[in-house]
Nucleic acid binder design. Structure first.
Lengths: 200, 200
DNA sequence: CAGCGAACGGTCAACCCTGACTGCCAGACC
DNA sequence: GGTCTGGCAGTCAGGGTTGACCGTTCGCTG
């Protein structure tokens, strides 16, 4: 059966376009993610793109939402993996720090950066992003808790320390927008590990 | 004497244009800081702008450099002020945290964000920014040390704690690109203060 | 099975941006 | 005083982007 129902075709089109939009955001940034660029990368006609996403802004907001979902399920999988395989608490702290740090160098983080930055000077985009980001942040926190595991999250210091680690990582990660060293070798990693080991 | 020498006029023009460029970057972002927008805000002709800054990139890189200098001297002044007026160590820690946090909500930080973000997908800009950022980071560190004061910086934990604070602040500050609450009330402030008091 | 409307394909006008280019004026230098 | 050149005004071509618009196909429903 080669024929696809209307709703299937529609869903296919949207996914195709959204993936292309994400790719454009990652490789060319917010400004470079023009509707023309997305259209070309997705290999769709102008009419097809504009039919599903009437304006550029709707397209890009939908793209981040799409990406966030994809990314959260992946992160959750990794969290489960870690929580199942590592029992030694010290090693688990180290691995968690490394894994969380690594998530800052995958597409979702850079796409989020692009959108946050663009939102600063665009009230409409900011309003569209705010609720989405709040939900996402909560979901990320939950995945983080899973990754650390109950032995660690039960520590009274945990909320403060994890918050400090997370925000510090984000702060450091930004610098890699213009640095081209490999992030895994960042000197801060050792710092975070020792802090986590000491305080948890 | 109304006449101005050639070099004076030239310097005036450059300053005029650079200030306008900074204003554009702050209010409209990197993409919005077009040469036309800068030209209009500065109230100069196209020829005058292009004479001093042959390309948009040169203009914007020069603008950040210009801004960074202005900002560093101001920050240094504040550091001296604090170090002269506050002797109680605990109060000094609190004030330092507040002051450092406040610097993340002035134009230089957002301009830097714009440039970093743009640099991610623009190799030429990245290369132009790297050395400048390295110098700037060192200068910021020096000002920070002045602000904390010798009693605190001599602590063995100081390098680690100050780095953690600084990066964490940067990580939190980014969220204010799309949040519109007042940053001074951020719950992280209390967290940073207690951490600084405890560890230093 | 009629025909409505979702899902497109393709074109177009309006707009904006960049950097080149021509021409002019007035300090600076001989 | 005469030239030279830095500083500048104003225009223009070329390229790119957005969203509107018209036309077509064909699932799906009455």
């Amino acid at each position: 059966m080669e024929t696809r129902s209307r709703s299937e075709r529609s869903a296919d089109s949207r996914a195709l376009i959204l993936d292309a939009a994400v790719a454009c955001l990652v490789s060319d940034g917010y400004a470079g993610a023009s509707t023309l660029a997305v259209q070309a990368r997705a290999g769709v006609s102008r009419g097809r793109l504009l039919h599903h996403f009437p304006s550029r802004e709707e397209l890009l907001v939908a793209a981040t939402s799409h990406l966030a979902e994809t990314m959260l399920t992946e992160a959750a999988d990794r969290a489960v993996e870690v929580s199942a395989s590592i029992t030694d608490p010290v090693e688990r702290v180290d691995r968690s720090v490394e894994l969380i740090w690594a998530t800052f160098f995958e597409p979702p983080f850079w796409v989020a950066m692009e959108l946050w930055n663009a939102a600063r000077t665009d009230e409409a985009l900011r309003a569209a992003l705010r609720p989405q980001e709040r939900r996402l942040r909560a979901a990320i926190r939950a995945v983080g808790d899973r990754m650390w595991g109950p032995a660690i999250t039960s520590s009274p210091r945990y909320p403060v320390v994890s918050e400090l680690l997370f925000t510090s990582m984000r702060g450091v990660a930004i610098a890699y927008a213009f640095e081209d060293r490999p992030p895994a070798t960042d000197p801060h990693v050792a710092l975070w590990k020792s802090m986590a080991r000491e305080l948890l």
